[in-house]
Design a protein around this nucleic acid. Structure first.
Length: 291
DNA sequence: TAGCAGGACGTAA
DNA sequence: TTACGTCCTGCT
Protein backbone atom coordinates (compact mmCIF):
# COMPACT_ATOMS: atom_id res chain seq x y z
CA UNK A 1 0.00 0.00 0.00
CA UNK A 2 1.15 3.47 -0.78
CA UNK A 3 0.38 7.14 -0.24
CA UNK A 4 1.09 9.40 -3.15
CA UNK A 5 0.75 13.17 -3.26
CA UNK A 6 1.93 16.31 -4.98
CA UNK A 7 5.32 17.57 -3.89
CA UNK A 8 4.44 20.99 -2.56
CA UNK A 9 6.17 22.45 0.52
CA UNK A 10 7.52 18.99 1.18
CA UNK A 11 11.18 18.02 1.08
CA UNK A 12 12.17 14.81 2.80
CA UNK A 13 15.73 15.86 3.47
CA UNK A 14 14.64 19.18 4.97
CA UNK A 15 12.03 17.50 7.15
CA UNK A 16 14.37 14.95 8.66
CA UNK A 17 17.59 16.93 8.78
CA UNK A 18 16.24 20.05 10.45
CA UNK A 19 16.89 18.56 13.90
CA UNK A 20 13.38 17.66 15.02
CA UNK A 21 13.52 13.87 14.66
CA UNK A 22 16.01 11.11 15.28
CA UNK A 23 14.55 7.83 13.99
CA UNK A 24 15.20 8.06 10.27
CA UNK A 25 17.85 6.94 7.80
CA UNK A 26 19.06 8.47 4.56
CA UNK A 27 19.18 5.41 2.31
CA UNK A 28 20.15 7.21 -0.88
CA UNK A 29 17.18 6.99 -3.23
CA UNK A 30 14.76 7.03 -0.30
CA UNK A 31 14.55 7.81 3.40
CA UNK A 32 13.40 5.24 5.93
CA UNK A 33 11.53 6.30 9.04
CA UNK A 34 10.11 4.59 12.12
CA UNK A 35 7.10 5.96 13.97
CA UNK A 36 4.58 4.33 16.31
CA UNK A 37 5.99 0.86 15.68
CA UNK A 38 5.70 1.20 11.89
CA UNK A 39 8.33 1.48 9.19
CA UNK A 40 8.00 3.48 5.98
CA UNK A 41 10.07 4.17 2.93
CA UNK A 42 9.59 7.64 1.56
CA UNK A 43 10.90 8.94 -1.74
CA UNK A 44 10.57 11.90 -4.07
CA UNK A 45 10.15 11.62 -7.81
CA UNK A 46 9.81 14.66 -10.04
CA UNK A 47 6.81 16.37 -8.49
CA UNK A 48 5.44 13.57 -6.34
CA UNK A 49 6.09 12.09 -2.92
CA UNK A 50 5.60 8.38 -2.36
CA UNK A 51 5.25 6.80 1.06
CA UNK A 52 5.07 3.05 1.22
CA UNK A 53 5.35 0.44 3.91
CA UNK A 54 6.91 -2.99 3.83
CA UNK A 55 4.44 -4.06 6.51
CA UNK A 56 0.88 -5.31 6.01
CA UNK A 57 -0.97 -3.04 8.39
CA UNK A 58 -0.45 0.26 6.67
CA UNK A 59 -2.64 3.05 7.98
CA UNK A 60 -2.29 6.16 5.86
CA UNK A 61 -3.94 8.26 8.58
CA UNK A 62 -0.95 7.75 10.89
CA UNK A 63 1.38 9.21 8.30
CA UNK A 64 -0.91 12.06 7.29
CA UNK A 65 -0.88 13.14 10.88
CA UNK A 66 2.85 12.54 11.33
CA UNK A 67 3.79 14.63 8.30
CA UNK A 68 1.15 17.26 9.07
CA UNK A 69 -0.23 16.83 5.55
CA UNK A 70 -3.49 18.64 6.22
CA UNK A 71 -1.66 21.90 6.83
CA UNK A 72 -0.88 24.41 4.10
CA UNK A 73 2.74 25.38 4.66
CA UNK A 74 2.66 27.80 1.73
CA UNK A 75 0.09 29.77 3.63
CA UNK A 76 2.16 29.65 6.81
CA UNK A 77 5.20 30.96 4.97
CA UNK A 78 3.15 33.80 3.52
CA UNK A 79 1.77 34.68 6.94
CA UNK A 80 5.24 35.03 8.48
CA UNK A 81 6.67 38.54 8.43
CA UNK A 82 8.29 39.74 5.24
CA UNK A 83 11.88 39.95 6.41
CA UNK A 84 14.87 39.57 4.13
CA UNK A 85 16.74 37.13 6.35
CA UNK A 86 13.70 35.06 7.20
CA UNK A 87 12.80 34.91 3.50
CA UNK A 88 16.24 33.46 2.80
CA UNK A 89 15.70 30.87 5.53
CA UNK A 90 12.25 29.98 4.19
CA UNK A 91 13.68 29.55 0.72
CA UNK A 92 16.57 27.45 1.98
CA UNK A 93 14.37 25.10 3.99
CA UNK A 94 11.33 25.40 1.70
CA UNK A 95 10.17 21.82 2.27
CA UNK A 96 10.34 21.72 6.08
CA UNK A 97 7.27 20.47 7.93
CA UNK A 98 6.88 20.07 11.67
CA UNK A 99 6.40 16.40 12.43
CA UNK A 100 3.79 15.31 14.95
CA UNK A 101 5.80 12.73 16.84
CA UNK A 102 4.83 10.32 19.58
CA UNK A 103 4.67 12.11 22.93
CA UNK A 104 6.59 9.60 25.05
CA UNK A 105 9.28 9.05 22.45
CA UNK A 106 9.69 12.82 22.04
CA UNK A 107 10.06 13.34 25.79
CA UNK A 108 12.76 10.68 26.15
CA UNK A 109 14.53 11.69 22.94
CA UNK A 110 14.85 15.30 24.02
CA UNK A 111 15.98 14.36 27.53
CA UNK A 112 18.79 12.54 25.72
CA UNK A 113 19.40 15.62 23.54
CA UNK A 114 20.59 17.73 26.49
CA UNK A 115 24.22 18.70 26.01
CA UNK A 116 24.43 16.25 23.17
CA UNK A 117 24.85 16.03 19.42
CA UNK A 118 22.49 14.70 16.79
CA UNK A 119 24.53 11.68 15.60
CA UNK A 120 25.05 10.58 19.20
CA UNK A 121 21.41 11.13 20.10
CA UNK A 122 20.38 9.00 17.12
CA UNK A 123 22.73 6.22 18.14
CA UNK A 124 21.52 6.21 21.75
CA UNK A 125 17.86 6.08 20.68
CA UNK A 126 18.55 3.30 18.22
CA UNK A 127 20.32 1.25 20.89
CA UNK A 128 17.57 1.87 23.44
CA UNK A 129 14.96 0.71 20.92
CA UNK A 130 16.91 -2.45 20.14
CA UNK A 131 17.32 -3.19 23.85
CA UNK A 132 13.80 -2.48 25.10
CA UNK A 133 11.57 -2.19 22.03
CA UNK A 134 10.12 -4.94 19.82
CA UNK A 135 11.58 -6.13 16.56
CA UNK A 136 9.07 -5.01 13.95
CA UNK A 137 10.81 -5.50 10.63
CA UNK A 138 14.07 -6.35 8.96
CA UNK A 139 15.36 -5.48 5.50
CA UNK A 140 18.74 -5.82 3.81
CA UNK A 141 19.93 -2.62 5.50
CA UNK A 142 19.06 -3.20 9.17
CA UNK A 143 16.64 -4.39 11.81
CA UNK A 144 13.88 -2.06 12.97
CA UNK A 145 12.64 -1.88 16.53
CA UNK A 146 9.73 0.03 17.99
CA UNK A 147 10.50 2.71 20.56
CA UNK A 148 9.95 1.10 23.99
CA UNK A 149 6.83 1.72 26.07
CA UNK A 150 7.06 3.78 29.29
CA UNK A 151 6.63 0.52 31.23
CA UNK A 152 9.65 -1.07 29.58
CA UNK A 153 11.90 1.97 30.05
CA UNK A 154 10.71 2.48 33.63
CA UNK A 155 12.06 -0.95 34.51
CA UNK A 156 15.37 -0.48 32.68
CA UNK A 157 18.62 -0.42 34.63
CA UNK A 158 20.26 3.01 34.34
CA UNK A 159 23.65 1.30 34.32
CA UNK A 160 22.71 -0.54 31.12
CA UNK A 161 21.54 2.68 29.49
CA UNK A 162 24.88 4.25 30.28
CA UNK A 163 27.00 1.27 29.30
CA UNK A 164 25.32 0.26 26.04
CA UNK A 165 23.26 3.24 24.89
CA UNK A 166 26.02 5.68 25.92
CA UNK A 167 23.62 8.18 27.44
CA UNK A 168 26.07 9.27 30.15
CA UNK A 169 24.64 11.34 33.00
CA UNK A 170 21.17 11.17 31.41
CA UNK A 171 20.76 7.53 32.51
CA UNK A 172 18.80 8.06 35.75
CA UNK A 173 16.80 10.86 34.19
CA UNK A 174 15.43 8.54 31.49
CA UNK A 175 14.31 5.86 33.94
CA UNK A 176 12.85 8.28 36.50
CA UNK A 177 11.00 10.27 33.83
CA UNK A 178 9.55 7.04 32.41
CA UNK A 179 8.35 6.06 35.89
CA UNK A 180 6.78 9.49 36.45
CA UNK A 181 5.03 9.30 33.08
CA UNK A 182 3.19 6.22 34.31
CA UNK A 183 1.65 8.20 37.16
CA UNK A 184 -1.99 9.37 36.80
CA UNK A 185 -1.01 13.05 36.92
CA UNK A 186 1.04 12.51 33.76
CA UNK A 187 -1.74 10.70 31.90
CA UNK A 188 -1.18 11.47 28.25
CA UNK A 189 -4.77 12.53 27.55
CA UNK A 190 -4.60 14.90 30.49
CA UNK A 191 -1.40 16.42 29.13
CA UNK A 192 -2.77 16.73 25.59
CA UNK A 193 -5.63 18.90 26.81
CA UNK A 194 -3.52 21.25 28.91
CA UNK A 195 -2.94 24.83 27.96
CA UNK A 196 0.59 25.28 26.60
CA UNK A 197 2.11 27.22 29.53
CA UNK A 198 0.62 24.82 32.08
CA UNK A 199 1.88 21.83 30.10
CA UNK A 200 5.37 23.35 29.93
CA UNK A 201 5.47 23.67 33.73
CA UNK A 202 4.25 20.08 34.05
CA UNK A 203 6.91 18.78 31.67
CA UNK A 204 9.64 20.65 33.56
CA UNK A 205 8.77 18.54 36.63
CA UNK A 206 10.39 15.63 34.80
CA UNK A 207 14.11 15.15 35.51
CA UNK A 208 16.22 16.22 32.55
CA UNK A 209 13.52 18.52 31.21
CA UNK A 210 14.34 22.22 31.44
CA UNK A 211 12.94 25.13 29.42
CA UNK A 212 14.59 24.22 26.13
CA UNK A 213 13.79 20.50 26.22
CA UNK A 214 10.22 21.27 27.31
CA UNK A 215 9.77 23.59 24.34
CA UNK A 216 11.03 20.93 21.92
CA UNK A 217 8.58 18.43 23.39
CA UNK A 218 5.74 20.97 23.10
CA UNK A 219 6.56 21.72 19.47
CA UNK A 220 7.43 18.27 18.13
CA UNK A 221 5.37 15.98 20.38
CA UNK A 222 2.32 18.03 21.28
CA UNK A 223 1.96 20.11 18.12
CA UNK A 224 2.19 23.47 19.88
CA UNK A 225 3.34 25.47 16.87
CA UNK A 226 3.58 28.79 18.72
CA UNK A 227 6.52 27.54 20.82
CA UNK A 228 10.05 28.71 20.04
CA UNK A 229 12.78 26.48 21.53
CA UNK A 230 16.03 28.37 22.13
CA UNK A 231 19.27 26.42 21.89
CA UNK A 232 22.80 27.68 21.21
CA UNK A 233 22.20 27.66 17.46
CA UNK A 234 18.96 29.56 17.37
CA UNK A 235 20.41 32.03 19.86
CA UNK A 236 23.32 32.77 17.54
CA UNK A 237 21.06 33.00 14.49
CA UNK A 238 18.61 35.38 16.18
CA UNK A 239 21.44 37.58 17.44
CA UNK A 240 23.13 37.65 14.06
CA UNK A 241 20.07 38.15 11.85
CA UNK A 242 17.51 39.96 13.99
CA UNK A 243 18.85 41.44 17.20
CA UNK A 244 22.32 42.62 16.26
CA UNK A 245 23.95 42.01 19.62
CA UNK A 246 24.43 39.30 22.20
CA UNK A 247 21.51 39.01 24.61
CA UNK A 248 20.72 36.52 27.38
CA UNK A 249 19.00 33.33 26.31
CA UNK A 250 15.87 34.31 28.22
CA UNK A 251 15.41 37.42 26.06
CA UNK A 252 15.51 35.56 22.72
CA UNK A 253 11.96 34.27 23.13
CA UNK A 254 10.62 37.78 23.55
CA UNK A 255 12.08 38.77 20.20
CA UNK A 256 10.71 35.60 18.59
CA UNK A 257 7.28 36.38 19.92
CA UNK A 258 7.48 39.95 18.67
CA UNK A 259 8.53 38.96 15.16
CA UNK A 260 6.71 35.68 14.60
CA UNK A 261 3.77 35.60 17.02
CA UNK A 262 1.91 32.30 17.14
CA UNK A 263 3.83 30.99 14.11
CA UNK A 264 7.12 31.11 16.04
CA UNK A 265 7.62 27.35 15.91
CA UNK A 266 7.66 27.31 12.12
CA UNK A 267 10.01 30.29 11.98
CA UNK A 268 12.28 28.49 14.45
CA UNK A 269 12.58 25.48 12.16
CA UNK A 270 13.42 27.52 9.06
CA UNK A 271 15.94 29.64 10.98
CA UNK A 272 17.52 26.72 12.81
CA UNK A 273 18.05 24.71 9.64
CA UNK A 274 19.27 27.71 7.66
CA UNK A 275 21.57 28.86 10.45
CA UNK A 276 23.09 25.51 11.21
CA UNK A 277 23.64 24.44 7.61
CA UNK A 278 25.28 27.77 6.84
CA UNK A 279 27.14 28.20 10.12
CA UNK A 280 25.44 31.50 10.85
CA UNK A 281 26.75 33.24 13.93
CA UNK A 282 29.47 30.71 14.55
CA UNK A 283 32.25 32.75 13.00
CA UNK A 284 31.37 35.80 15.03
CA UNK A 285 31.44 33.70 18.16
CA UNK A 286 34.95 32.56 17.30
CA UNK A 287 36.05 36.15 16.69
CA UNK A 288 34.72 37.22 20.04
CA UNK A 289 36.61 34.43 21.71
CA UNK A 290 39.88 35.47 20.09
CA UNK A 291 39.60 38.99 21.52
C1' DT B 1 46.58 14.66 24.88
C1' DA B 2 43.92 18.43 25.83
C1' DG B 3 40.05 20.98 24.15
C1' DC B 4 35.56 21.45 22.53
C1' DA B 5 30.44 20.98 21.76
C1' DG B 6 25.98 20.52 23.80
C1' DG B 7 21.32 21.70 28.24
C1' DA B 8 19.91 20.52 33.03
C1' DC B 9 20.58 21.27 37.60
C1' DG B 10 22.45 22.61 41.98
C1' DT B 11 24.58 26.29 44.34
C1' DA B 12 25.95 30.99 45.10
C1' DA B 13 25.86 35.80 44.56
C1' DT C 1 17.33 36.74 38.43
C1' DT C 2 21.63 35.67 36.71
C1' DA C 3 26.14 33.30 36.73
C1' DC C 4 28.94 29.63 37.54
C1' DG C 5 30.70 24.58 37.58
C1' DT C 6 29.69 19.86 36.87
C1' DC C 7 27.67 15.99 34.57
C1' DC C 8 29.29 12.55 29.82
C1' DT C 9 30.85 11.03 25.15
C1' DG C 10 33.17 11.27 20.91
C1' DC C 11 35.60 13.76 17.94
C1' DT C 12 39.72 16.56 16.50
Amino acid sequence: MIIEFEKKDFNIKHIFECGQAFRWYDDGDHFTSIHKGKVIYIREEENKIYINSPLEDFDSKIWEKYFDLKKDYGKIKNSLIDNEELNKAKEFGYGIRILKQDEFETIISFIISANNMIPRIKKSIETISSMYGDLIFEDEKRRYYSFPSPERLASADPKDLRKYARVGFRDERIVTASKMLLEPSFNINLLKNMETDILREKLIELPGVGPKVADCILLFGFGRAEVFPVDVWIKRVMEELFIGEEVPKSKIKLYANKYFGNLAGYAQQYLFYYGRENNIGKERKKENKAK
